[in-house]
Design a protein around this nucleic acid. Structure first.
Length: 288
DNA sequence: AAATTGTTCAACCGCTACCAA
DNA sequence: CTTGGTAGCGGTTGAACAATT
């Protein structure tokens, strides 16, 4: 075994800001040869940088399809909503915003949106006994996505119904999902696609019918939740929460399968972290 | 005008899933 | 099956710039 190490720190590779000459070398090389192996690229392109640095420079700054300039209100809204759904999965969020990089979105979130939300009083965990509870928080996050989808549905319906000015209500939107656009082609809007899914329909109707359990970890958590002594030992409340968790996990699964949100190296996205992480998440994630 | 404080964002660091040897 | 390299990700840093005192 034994490949050469990726970044040989003994060779005195350059770090820090890129010069315009370095940029030109990188762009010229990639445009004529493609990036190929990032490890070999610096040598081939005549750059005294490590491949990692070249990849970052290209993907975050030099790529020709990168959109420059301030974020539009629509983009801001999408970031907030997507962050509510997937959390700090910047690459997933970036995949839904053409021309924007994960680094850019991450920076924008940390420097603008987080502050804005804090000012609006949305950066703290909700008050009450459910504070810090991942299930309650995620349910609230789904609710924000639901409201967004409803708003967009209304806009869509009013624009397509012309002068009549009628709008599709929340209860009638399942018709849209079942026989309308979903049957012909999927809506391009991520929130409408979530909303028009079976899972979205389940949330809208708040159906009491038990959802099929599709993941082993859901079963495990359900058993653990039942074993844990809840506040006041309210077993029905615990059961409701477990059902809510299962439904929300199905929503996440749907997002992964239908929208490609969770494709790639990280596989799926689970509501159910290891026990140690639950505490960490509750104390650290104060964005919502 | 100078010093201090705050803000932005490009780039780096460390971690890890994936995959080749 | 094990080991180790690669690529990609999220968190963090620090230089540059802007605003304030």
């Amino acid at each position: 075994m034994g490949r050469a190490p990726c970044c040989d720190r003994t060779k005195g590779l350059k770090k820090g800001p890129w010069t315009s000459e370095e940029d030109k070398l990188l762009v010229d090389y990639i445009q004529s040869n493609g990036h190929g192996s990032w490890r070999l690229l610096p040598k081939l392109a005549g750059l005294n940088r490590c491949g990692k640095s070249c990849r970052l420079r290209w993907t975050n700054y030099l790529r020709p399809d990168i959109k420059r300039g301030p974020f539009s209100p629509e983009e801001q809204k999408s970031i907030v909503q997507l962050h509510a759904i997937v959390g700090n999965k910047w690459s997933m969020i970036a995949a839904q915003l053409p021309g924007r990089t994960d680094n850019e979105i991450k920076n924008y979130w940390n420097t603008h949106l987080k502050k804005q939300l804090r000012r609006m009083g949305l950066a703290e965990p909700p008050p009450g006994p459910a504070a810090g509870c991942p299930a309650a928080r995620h349910m609230a996050q789904w609710e924000t996505a639901r409201l967004e989808a409803e708003a967009r549905l209304s806009l869509l319906a009013s624009s397509s119904s012309g002068a009549t000015g009628t709008t599709i209500s929340a209860s009638s939107s399942s018709t849209f999902a079942a026989g309308g656009e979903k049957a012909a082609s999927k809506p391009a809007d991520i929130f409408l696609r979530l909303w028009s899914s079976d899972i979205g329909d389940s949330f809208r109707r708040k159906a009491a019918a038990p959802a099929p359990v599709r993941r082993n970890d859901v079963v495990i958590i359900k058993q653990e939740a039942q074993a844990l002594p809840g506040p006041g030992d309210d077993s029905s409340a615990a059961s409701n929460e477990t059902e809510a968790l299962e439904e929300y996990q199905m929503f996440l699964d749907f997002a992964g399968e239908e929208l490609g949100l969770f494709h790639g190296r990280h596989g799926g996205f689970s509501l159910f972290p290891p026990h140690d992480d639950v505490l960490a998440e509750a104390s650290l994630d104060t964005a919502f």
